[in-house]
Amino acid sequence: MLPKVKQLLFIQVASSDEEEAAIEYKSRVEDEDEGELLIDVPIIEGTGKYKRLFLGDELSLYFVSGEGVKHYFNSHVLGFKEEVVKLIRIRKPELSAITSVQRRSFLRVEAELEIAVKMSAHVRFIGMTDDVGGGGISFLCDGRWPVKAGQELDCWLLIPYRNGSLEHAQFKAEIVRVKATETGRNQIMAKFVTISDLERQKIIRFCFERQLDYRKN
């Protein structure tokens, strides 16, 4: 069964920060259109705290049927619609993709990819990812760069594909967390805040290829 209008949804948002990724939010389907659902801004039940979502954010969701069965599916944010209240547009799942078993596969894979970062007009540096996904990245950079949570970065990710071709994916990312390592470098966990569908698909294609490689090994 597919989620219906007025159906309650329970949501977790993909994040490089494990604590943030574990938070469960509640929302409701307010409308639907061809290929998409329109939902309320997610909220943490009992706290009144809203979750700001961004284009391309990956979501793990479930809804509960009248018989009490949880139905899980994955989706991502397509955009926003301004009504009386703001609504979030997410990809409507295929019926075949809904399961009674949770599968939080956010297409996040381990990968060492070169990333060029621009913090300001005068501060640019090169880092190396340790994982990438359709909703965000984690990368390592020299500890001397003044990075901190909440900063927005302009990024260019170099992506190699299995056929030997190379692509650059360009996006803006917000730093979620900075962790100092024993080697003197910083591990930066960041989520995409501005990324086109085309650029995001480049990254997801790489993740799919990497997952296929893992299954073969």
Rank of each mutant, 00 (worst) to 15 (best):
G48C: 11
Y50G: 01
K51P: 00
G56W: 03
G56H: 06
L59M: 10
S60V: 04
L61Q: 11
L61S: 15
Y62Q: 06
F63W: 07
F63G: 07
S65G: 13
E67R: 11
G68K: 06
K70Q: 14
H71A: 07
F73V: 09
N74A: 09
S75D: 12
V77A: 08
L78T: 03
L78S: 04
L78F: 07
L78N: 15
L78Q: 11
F80M: 07
K81Y: 13
K81M: 10
K81F: 12
K81P: 00
E83F: 08
V84M: 12
V84R: 13
V85C: 03
L87S: 04
L87F: 09
I88Q: 04
I88H: 05
R89F: 02
I90W: 09
R91T: 12
R91E: 13
R91V: 10
K92M: 15
E94D: 14
S96K: 15
S96R: 14
I98E: 07
I98G: 08
I98A: 04
I98S: 06
T99Q: 10
T99G: 05
V101D: 08
Q102V: 07
Q102W: 00
R104G: 03
S105C: 09
S105L: 15
F106N: 04
L107W: 02
L107G: 13
L107S: 10
R108A: 05
V109R: 08
V109L: 05
E110L: 07
A111S: 12
E112M: 00
E112D: 14
L113I: 02
E114Y: 01
I115L: 08
A116V: 00
V117F: 03
S120P: 06
A121N: 11
V123A: 07
V123N: 11
I126V: 14
G127A: 06
G127I: 03
M128C: 01
M128H: 01
D130F: 14
D130R: 15
D130S: 10
D131Q: 11
D131E: 13
G134W: 02
G136M: 02
I137M: 14
F139K: 02
F139L: 04
F139W: 05
